[in-house]
Design a protein around this nucleic acid. Structure first.
Lengths: 174, 174
DNA sequence: TTCTGTCAACCTACTAGTCGGTAGAGGTAT
DNA sequence: ATACCTCTACCGACTAGTAGGTTGACAGAA
């Protein structure tokens, strides 16, 4: 799903990779939407866990944000994939309502996390936050996801870091 | 293509909307990739034209950038669609090489335009440009495309403006 | 121990429908 | 006559999804 989007992967393709038959997947996930929802649910859970781990082991807000950026760069996987939330956004028109709602919730969780990190960074003077942290958090997520898209589209991973240059400029080295 | 991506639209769907048969489209565009390339080519041309028009009728860099933001907001079409370059990025894995190359070129054109606008804005003091305009242009495009994605994913168009808050903060009112 | 029933997991084989693409007939305007 | 365009009818491959059978592990009773 992260490589080809929601409409771009099939039970047949999945079955071949897993070494089982299509029907066996249908046994566990009757409809494609069930599988999609389960994958997104697990993804959102894991993402929150990783982000919370980052915050727990970082001393400054900038350190947290830097680790988050690295996470999104790694998720690019040399242009093969992107963050699931970005990949699903493009296929939003074919998503079921539960999936669409969970996608919004997942994005919301990341935005919340970014907001706390920006607040922390403002307090410890490691990040420059011009406006409301709640608004800026949305802007940062947009820049992260947009950077992934530009890098994936061109196949040039260096674009990812360039697209985050204005964000890096707001952070102090540590 | 802007609504459902490259893999998400079909000759059958297109034929029904156009009121002709599938085969007639194949007469003009033998393969789907031919149609995709033609659409992207025309899109890139028109985009450049519109952007140049904007620059010609704007007095300051900020005015140009503001008009560009409006353009991307309009392109969202209440969450139904997004910029073709963003829509294609998600389907990058199924794009033919010519399409992929043209996508990169199209993004490059926009980045070039943004760079000149940022330079202008820096000169007339209407935009704050922290680092290299060439790098910042990539960052701005990432933020624009990311803002579209977040807004489309949630169905809430207000998210688009929120995601551009940090960009707006760098521009002077006019 | 051994028989029996239950259950999840998996399989083969199939459905209806869609995908991109093709062959060739027929119409139409120059 | 000859391009040019649109059509009907079709192809093989693929899509999600279903029906029904096989396997093996486990639980309880004789």
């Amino acid at each position: 799903m992260r490589q080809n989007g929601y409409g771009g992967f099939s039970y047949a393709h999945l079955a071949k990779q897993a070494g089982i038959r299509k029907a066996s997947i249908h046994h566990h996930f009757p409809a494609k939407a069930d599988l999609g929802l389960a994958v997104l649910d697990r993804y959102a859970d894991r993402l929150v866990t990783v982000l919370d781990d980052i915050k727990a082991t970082s001393r400054t807000g900038a350190q947290s944000l830097q680790a988050c950026i690295s996470l999104y760069r790694t998720a690019l996987d040399d242009g093969a994939a992107m963050c699931l939330c970005s990949a699903l956004a493009a296929d939003q028109s074919i998503l079921t309502d539960p999936m669409s709602a969970m996608l919004t919730r997942a994005n919301g969780k990341v935005i919340e996390w970014l907001e706390t990190v920006l607040l922390m960074g403002r307090q410890d003077r490691s990040i420059v936050v011009p406006g409301l942290p709640a608004d800026d958090a949305v802007a940062v997520l947009a820049q992260l996801q947009g950077a992934q898209m530009l890098a994936k589209a061109s196949g040039d991973m260096a674009i990812f870091d360039t697209a985050l240059s204005s964000l890096q400029a707001r952070m102090s080295r540590s």
